[in-house]
Structures are given as C-alpha cells and as structure tokens.
C-alpha cells in the first residue's frame, strides 16, 4: 500500500429529470397563488395590517402566550409525575396513572374544557364547611381553560416521558446503583438527562400544538388571540382579514418555537454520535457535489 494521496473521483452525476419537471410545476403553482393573493382585493391587506397591532389582538396574543406557557408547565410537571407513577412497582400507583391517562386521552379536549367551565353545576362550593368558596369565583374561564388544557396535556406528556425513561438502557441504572447511587438521584442525574433526548422532540411538537390548541378556549369565552379576532369580526364583518391577522401571529410564534426546539435538541444530543450532514439544496436539486473537505 502506498501512502500517496489519491485524486478525488470526478464523475458526471446522475441527471434527475423528474426533479426538474416537478420543480417547474411547483414554481408555476406558486406564481399563480402569489399573484392571486396580491391582486384579489377581498384579502383586504390594508385591513390585515391595521388589525395586526390592534390593542385587542395584542391582548389576546398575550393571553394566548400565558395560557400556552402555564398549560405546558402543568402538562410537563404532571406528565413527569404520571410517568414515574406509571413505572412504579406498586400496582395501585401505576393503575391510578393508567386510569388518569385513559380518561384524559379518551375524551375530547373540547368536552373537558366545557366540563371545567360548568364545574360549578356539579359542585357549587369547593372546600369544607366555612373553608369553602364559590366554585364560580374559583374557576373563572381562565382557570377552566388552564385546567382543561394542562390536565389533558399531562396525559399526553406522561406517555412521552414514559417512552423516554424506558428508552434508557437498563445498564445505566445498574451502573449507577453499583456506584451506590440511590433511586431518586439515579433518575435525576443519569436516567432523565438521557431520556431528554427522546422526550424533547415530541415535547417541542406538543408545545407548538398547544399554542394553536389554546384557540379552542373560544368555546368557554376566555379572551385569547382567536377570541379577540372573532369578537372583532363579529362587529365589523371583516372575517378574512382578521383570521389572516391571527394566522400571522400563530405562524410567527410557532416559527420561533421551532427554532428554540432545534437549539435545545442539539444541546441534549451531547455524547450521541453522528449529526448527519444533510446535502444542501443545490446538491439535492441539481446533483451538484460539494468539494470533499
């Protein structure tokens, strides 16, 4: 064997006419859509811009964000607790978590939201004797929305966390206990950090989904982004522009969340080999090969 450096292979790449044809078709459709969006006056773009920063829309936006964050906090914390319960050796503890998950995943979210809103019909007062409060003052639409979204999310997060914990090799737990580490610490220091890699991507998806799902609380009248848009167009009948304004905000926020998600995922993939390098646009489209480094 010689140690001489070999020249890199220079070969004509395979032509891909299918990609070219597909590309042309897509370009034509895109031009048509953009042309229509720009020229169709019914979109009323000036109205969209005017309402995009309307005080009511911005208030709704803020409430949407608050609701998303708090619901996810309840969902994640509840999910971790439920997952640990689910993996417990005690059949009662594990069974209780299973029943919770069964119930909250088995009924529609919108049913649960309305249920919490009407909770006072079931229990007019909450508490014991003198230490009780009127249910309607305790469960305002905001609390009902939070309960509905958070408790439902916990059931889904529980399955995600459980999958993550189960994905960690049993040898990791053994190594930790052989070092004299106790169960709680093993979970916190060894198992959960590794489970994160499996847990985080779907949690990011859940957060993005939650941002949009908060719009469901329109049915119980809590004032978030979608409720705001609806109330405004109920007055001025400019449905399409207001729906577009709301959609723009949802798109912007979900895009920001997606960027966060990929950053966090990178951080937790430490110690896991092979971040595969994706071929770039030019290479995939035209089979242009980048010079090997």
């Amino acid at each position: 064997m010689t140690t001489e450096q070999q020249d890199p292979i220079k070969a004509v790449p395979v032509r891909r006419p299918g990609r070219w044809i597909g590309g042309v078709v897509i370009a034509l459709i895109a031009i048509g859509v953009i042309y229509s969006i720009v020229t169709n006056r019914n979109f009323e773009w000036p109205t969209v811009w005017r309402y995009l920063f309307d005080f009511r829309i911005l208030t709704g936006l803020r409430n949407t964000l608050v609701l998303t964050v708090l619901s996810m906090v309840i969902g994640v914390v509840g999910g971790i607790i439920l997952a640990i319960m689910r993996l417990s050796r005690s059949p009662l503890v594990s069974g209780a978590a299973a029943v919770y998950i069964w119930f909250f995943r088995g009924t529609p979210l919108i049913t649960q939201l309305i249920f919490w809103n009407f909770f006072s019909l079931l229990y007019p007062r909450i508490g014991w004797g003198t230490f009780s409060v009127d249910t309607n003052t305790l469960i305002a639409p905001f609390v009902a929305a939070l309960l509905g979204l958070g408790l439902n999310e916990a059931a889904y997060m529980a399955e995600i966390v459980r999958g993550g914990i189960s994905s960690v090799d049993e040898g990791q737990r053994e190594a930790a206990s052989a070092l004299g580490m106790r169960q709680g610490k093993t979970l916190r220091r060894i198992v959960l950090p590794q489970a994160m890699r499996v847990i985080l991507p779907p949690t990011g998806n859940e957060t993005i989904a939650m941002l949009k799902t908060t719009s469901l609380v329109v049915v119980i009248g809590y004032f978030e982004l979608m409720t705001a848009a609806q109330q405004i167009y109920a007055d001025n009948l400019k449905q399409i522009p207001l729906l577009i304004a709301a959609a723009i905000w949802y798109l912007l926020l979900t895009s920001i969340l997606s960027i966060f998600q990929s950053r966090i995922e990178k951080r937790y993939s430490r110690g896991v080999s092979g971040i595969a390098t994706q071929p770039g646009f030019a290479e995939r489209m035209f089979s242009f090969r980048k010079a090997a480094r």
Binding site: G171, A175, S177, A178, L179
Partner: peptide
C-alpha cells in the same frame, strides 16, 4: 446503596454515562 459504595463493579458493556 451505602454498602455498594465500597464495592466497585465493571461491566461487560462498560455502561459509562454517555
């Protein structure tokens, strides 16, 4: 756990924390 601290163990598949 306390007693295990005094006994070291090495595994076939290393089981390092990745």
């Amino acid at each position: 756990a306390e007693k295990r601290r005094e006994i070291g163990m090495v595994f076939q598949r290393f089981n390092l924390f990745p």
